[in-house]
């Protein structure tokens, strides 16, 4: 079993604790957070050892891997320390606030030869993986345009005051919501080369944007639109959708269903001429422990299996997440031009 720790006990950190603790390859031995309240709950109700200082924890504990789920501005220092200790690292998204720092971490992780992963969980959703397969098989012919969207009800009135309302600390819709969509576009369709016509809109927040709209051009020349808004209360929870259109058809997919329009149909993929609809129930494997979605367990499982065997392919590496950070930087720079 790999001795594991979780640093940062917010929403994702707690979720990781539950998944790590029940995973057959992982042993949750310590947690670390600066908030005394959450740490107190762990002290009273669980058997893990608790730290408020990650450096002290790295010094005192024999660890194999670390899950970093702190606010983004702390990622660089913590991940660097962990890599210096030779630990395998799972880091929450977005990866880094500054591309040069992210690059340093990518290089260091390669030098150390450790497993490195970032928590872009959409890469572990059945519908999006099927989408990627269909694109790779050329089902759409020449893809010429795409739309990447995400909407949800995070900030629906004026207020705020945590790190998420500070752009300099990794808050805002661009870092939080749009990063998922950018990463998913790159996963399914290819790397993004340039951005244009970018609008970062403040709707209710004063320090950060609540919506991101932009044109995107991929390395392969395909054009697309990004439309992300976390102040849309017509959605009950975050909802992410990717649409791609090509000379042979069109695909529209969210986390629950994928709708495929094929001009000719395709026997190998069981696609009829016209519309075929497949659901998460057809495309998602069961997990051993479920919390909020199969993808959260599946990504931790991928991380654990990558530590266990070099043959296991890591589906969301530091390097792929750094590409997303590069696009975020371009969107931010466009705005300040």
């Amino acid at each position: 079993m790999f001795k594991s720790c979780v640093i940062g006990l917010g929403k994702m950190g707690i979720s990781h604790c539950a998944i790590v603790n029940t995973h057959p390859l992982l042993d949750l031995v310590t947690v670390c957070d600066t908030s005394s309240f959450v740490l107190d709950v762990f002290k009273r109700y669980s058997a893990v050892r608790c730290y408020t200082d990650y450096k002290e924890m790295f010094q005192n504990e024999e660890l194999d891997c670390v899950f970093v789920a702190t606010p983004t501005k702390f990622h660089f220092d913590i991940v660097k320390s962990a890599l210096d200790k030779g630990l395998h690292v799972f880091c929450e998204k977005p990866f880094s606030l500054h591309v040069d720092e992210g690059k340093e971490l990518v290089d260091l992780s390669l030098k150390r030869g450790v497993v490195n992963q970032v928590g872009y969980h959409n890469r572990f959703i059945g519908t999006f993986n099927y989408f990627k397969k269909l694109i790779e098989a050329g089902i759409l012919g020449n893809v010429y345009h795409f739309v990447g969207e995400a909407y949800g009800p995070v900030v629906t009135r004026k207020k705020g005051g945590t790190w998420r309302s500070k752009g300099s600390e990794g808050g805002g819709c661009l870092f939080d919501y749009a990063s998922h969509v950018i990463n998913l576009i790159e996963f399914i369709l290819g790397d993004i080369k340039s951005v244009d016509g970018t609008q970062l809109k403040k709707i209710y927040s004063s320090g950060v944007e609540d919506a991101v709209y932009s044109a995107l051009i991929l390395e392969n020349g395909v054009s697309g639109n990004l439309s992300v808004n976390w102040s849309d209360e017509t959605y009950r929870k975050m909802s992410t959708q990717i649409t791609a259109i090509g000379t042979e058809g069109k695909i529209i997919s969210d986390a629950q269903e994928i709708r495929i329009y094929s001009k000719k149909g395709n026997e190998k993929f069981g696609l009829e001429k016209g519309w075929t609809i497949k659901y998460i129930t057809d495309l998602t494997d069961n997990v051993d422990f479920y919390l909020r979605g199969e993808e959260y367990s599946a990504q931790v499982d991928n991380f654990a299996k990558s530590m266990e065997s070099e043959a296991s392919h890591n589906k969301s590496s530091f390097e792929s997440a750094l590409n997303t950070d590069r696009v975020i930087e371009k969107l931010n720079n466009y705005q300040t031009q």
Partner: peptide, 11 residues
């Protein structure tokens, strides 16, 4: 969950 995303656990 939406509140924690915006305000954190203590918030």
């Amino acid at each position: 969950v939406n509140a924690v995303t915006e305000l954190g656990i203590i918030g």
